[in-house]
Write a protein that binds this DNA or RNA. Structure first.
Lengths: 196, 196
DNA sequence: ATAAAAAATCGACCGCGGTCATTTTCCCAT
DNA sequence: ATGGGAAAATGACCGCGGTCGATTTTTTAT
């Protein structure tokens, strides 16, 4: 896998053939398929590991004193920055993640559940603090944020949002989500201290 | 393209080779590439046409008297029902749409702009009616709904949401978006008559 | 220690997506 | 009509992802 990532980074995913990848790793071509069912699975497995690690770290060290808006922006911006490190990796990973093949469903669901389990405590705390409506299901709230994150990444891919504009855009989207799209008078303010 | 869609539907996208597709269409293999740069472009072009048509029809005939929530749910549910007609088509189309290759950027952006132009009037009217906050940019509002739609489709792909639960889920998500995730007292009610 | 069984490794092979030099078709100026 | 040149069509060909039976290595049983 190390050889794979090195080659993918150097020459690009498409331009790297399994044969030369196997040669670089000092194994036979067929052996590769003993570890990974398809080529993109090599990349996907790598990405999943990376993100799993990143998420663990982020959610564990999340500062539960700051507003939920800030927490969510931090977590998703970290993912986003990781994404933007390599556009090609990102596309394949996001495509498989958001719209997985049926073959990958089991693995995908397990990872997602894992992720939710990391986020839920943060959201629950926010509910207790009165920052989030208590009557909403945690899954729906997570979904809401995640949907907006998908949008951000999609907009970045299509060039509508530059990398440096991303944080502002995500903050704005999340704030919209918290305050609501329709006119209303919030009971608590989320714009008490701006952002940073 | 007719031959392509027929074969793709019958045998599946992956299982249909360009060669037999060309034979079915009564042309040579190389000629296919005179019309479509890649295989998935055949499917993508078809889907784009379908959706373009569907969107035109829906937004033109949108009943601007009903709440914006209902309008948005109708529009996106129509898209969703189209999506669910063929899981395989849908995956390829959504993957390319949400995370397009750089080669397809121009075409993709044009289509998206087109789509926005269809939605904007509806949202603008809703702003005038006081259903949406006037200080929000139309692009952000569109994005918000679109992001939640992406989430719905993604959840459907991963099996978290069944086809028949989709409308309820989307309605719930959109209502959340309108009312906001944080506790507050709406100036107008979006739950005046339930849904259906 | 040895044989048999099980697991891992391998690379020749297959079918397909995509390319390109060649051929065919079409159009227009003479 | 006809010659010529551009445009379109074509299928042999290439490289790659993925398969599979042959072969080697490892494990287990006696």
């Amino acid at each position: 896998m190390q050889a794979a990532i090195r080659l993918f980074s150097e020459k690009g995913f498409e331009k790297t053939s399994i044969e030369e990848l196997a040669r670089a790793a000092g194994i036979g071509k067929g052996t590769v398929y003993g570890y990974f069912p398809t080529k993109s699975d090599i990349l996907h497995a790598f990405c999943e590991d990376e993100f799993e690690c990143l998420r663990q770290e982020l959610t564990a060290n999340a500062d539960q004193e700051v507003p939920i808006l800030t927490q969510m922006v931090r977590i998703y911006m970290a993912e986003f920055m990781k994404i933007t490190e390599n556009r090609e990796f990102a596309r394949i990973f996001m495509q498989q993640t958001a719209f997985p093949r049926d073959v990958d469903l089991q693995r995908h669901l397990a990872h997602e559940d894992n992720y939710f389990a990391l986020l839920f405590p943060l959201l629950e705390k926010a509910q207790e603090r009165g920052e989030l409506r208590r009557e909403l299901e945690l899954l729906h709230i997570t979904g809401h944020f995640y949907g907006l994150y998908l949008l951000l990444v999609s907009a970045w891919f299509s060039g509508r949002i530059a990398t440096e504009e991303a944080e502002e855009a995500l903050t704005s989207l999340f704030r919209q989500a918290l305050e609501g799209l329709q006119p209303q008078k919030p009971l608590i303010s989320t714009t008490d201290n701006g952002n940073e």
